[in-house]
């Protein structure tokens, strides 16, 4: 009897073990040395890769830029996503709700390549936006191949995740709470500020952590829209492996990136756990 759940988990454990094996290999590789001219690596164990990465100014500026950009992207996503999620949660029109949900899920399922490319043709130097500006006799703007373009693209990528996650939390706040607040004399704005926003904090934090995780590991968007000028961790790692096939060095970079990402997510995770208990049982 106690054996049964483990048997049921066997396939999942097997898949996870492969994942773990890949991780162990990669950690081992990060302490090795590349054999020149091959994909192979050899011992003895060395910290050289790590010390080289830590000493490199590019790595440090990349780490800072990644955290800064991911934070900015998350903030913008939350600011833009909250009103949409709120209107969606409280709209009385079934049709409107369905249309918006439909649009969000289609966008969400359309994938990253499609959307990164869409932004490239809109924001590119000879893209739609600049054509329109020219047609209106206005000066053109540089929106692609810099941080602005990457931020716009990633925020667009994250919005459906954010809105759909926050929506679930907002729907769980009983409308009757808002009605009783208004009945007690609060304006719409004060109802939002004193009732809805505080009650939505757990959902907001979890939607924001999800977005932050996505922003941290952004790869395709900085690669396509950054034009080589925006250095986020994933791109730097990818470009290092393209230019100089030094797997141990890249593995060390990836390991440090993973530590950074997991530390940031663990911090958000503890915030999430703390806020999740905030109103436990109070709104049901």
């Amino acid at each position: 009897m106690p054996l049964r759940p483990y048997l049921l988990l066997l396939p999942a454990i097997a898949a996870f073990s492969l994942f773990a094996a890949a991780f162990v290999t990669f950690m081992v590789v990060s302490f090795q040395t590349a054999t020149p001219g091959t994909v192979l690596t050899h011992g003895p164990a060395t910290f050289a890769n790590y010390s080289a990465v830590i000493a490199s100014p590019l790595a440090r500026s990349t780490a800072l830029a990644t955290l800064r950009l991911a934070g900015l992207m998350t903030l913008l996503t939350a600011l833009l996503g909250y009103p949409l999620a709120y209107v969606l949660a409280r709209s009385t029109s079934r049709l409107l709700r369905r249309l918006v949900l439909f649009g969000l899920i289609v966008t969400f399922l359309s994938g990253g390549v499609t959307r990164a490319y869409a932004w490239l043709i809109i924001l590119g130097n000879r893209g739609l936006l600049n054509q329109m500006l020219v047609a209106l006799g206005l000066p053109t703007v540089r929106l692609a191949y810099n941080e602005t373009g990457v931020v716009i693209g990633v925020v667009h990528f994250l919005l459906p995740f954010f809105v759909l996650t926050l929506l679930a939390a907002l729907k769980n706040i009983p409308l009757s709470l808002e009605e009783s607040a208004r009945n007690l004399g609060a304006s719409r704005w004060r109802v939002f500020w004193h009732v809805v926003l505080p009650l939505s904090i757990p959902g907001l934090v979890s939607a924001a952590s999800l977005s932050f995780a996505g922003a941290l590991s952004a790869f395709l968007f900085p690669e396509l829209l950054g034009g080589g000028r925006v250095h986020m961790a994933s791109n730097v790692i990818f470009e290092t492996i393209l230019t100089d096939f030094n797997l141990p060095r890249v593995a060390a970079m990836a390991a440090l990136f993973l530590v950074l990402a997991l530390a940031a997510l663990a911090l958000l995770g503890s915030l999430e756990r703390r806020t999740a208990k905030l109103w436990a049982g109070a709104t049901r």
Binding site: A12, F19, V28, F219, A233, A255, L258, A261
Partner: peptide, 27 residues
Amino acid sequence: LVNALIMSPLVVPGVVIGISFLSLSAR
């Protein structure tokens, strides 16, 4: 523990997973 481990691939950046499996397949 099992639950957390099974879900862990979701929090690892894709690039890191890519490099890991590249290392594994090279090995």
